[in-house]
Write a protein that binds this DNA or RNA. Sequence first.
DNA 1: GTCCTGTTTCGACATCGGTCAATATCGACC
DNA 2: GGTCGATATTGACCGATGTCGAAACAGGAC
Lengths: 123, 123
Amino acid sequence: MSKQVLPLNDVSECRVAPLVREPLSPDAAAELAVKLKALSDPARLRLLSAIASTATQEACVCDLSVGIDLTQPTISHHLKVLRQAGLVDSERRGTWVYYRVVSDALQQLSLLFGTDTLTVTAR
Amino acid sequence: MSKQVLPLNDVSECRVAPLVREPLSPDAAAELAVKLKALSDPARLRLLSAIASTATQEACVCDLSVGIDLTQPTISHHLKVLRQAGLVDSERRGTWVYYRVVSDALQQLSLLFGTDTLTVTAR
DNA sequence: GTCCTGTTTCGACATCGGTCAATATCGACC
DNA sequence: GGTCGATATTGACCGATGTCGAAACAGGAC
């Protein structure tokens, strides 16, 4: 599986200017749209929420399949979209693949929609 | 900067369970997906940001057209999508139509992605 | 090695979504 | 009334996306 390398996003330099602060640059808008597009599907929202709300902040695909009326390949596809958007990452442990939320990514979005500066408290 | 009053939204009832709190119900996910889908396009993100970052929190279509390389019908289409998602509303005053952001909607999203309860401090 | 289970990828299909040119509507002004 | 400028709607094109079944892949147990 070494071919699927992916640039592994650099979340670090994400200086999210709140949406209300200054007009988004075309580049920033394009980058943001990727994350938001990944979140724009009900199934993916539920998957992300299901992962995020577990006690351990992680879940395997088999856990995520219960309660969602989609075939398992479709769920796998949605998880891939979330992963490529940098919202979750995954790790194989034995038979199962565990997905975790990338909390920095969620926080970035929270800051983005924040109406004023109170949000700077992050980290 | 006293103009930034905000309609004194009833944050109280804004019971947006943060994504990490409990699994989203199918209904909640579908409702959320509408807003996020509206935000999943770079052009709409830039339009929303352009509106939100004006001094008066509103802008007419002619203002929004400058700096965005899209035809006028396309911009009008994107604004319609934003409006139908409840993210902006519009008002005609004479010849021009002014768009405003619905700040409650943005705040809802900010709370949604908040990693924990710190966000409740707003205002 | 052979099975079995969990997960991903592949092809195909139907639908959705962004964009434009053309046209329509609305309001101001003469 | 007529005309003009600003905005909205329509219709069409075409690429993107959600979904599935089938097949491939990965690891553990035997």
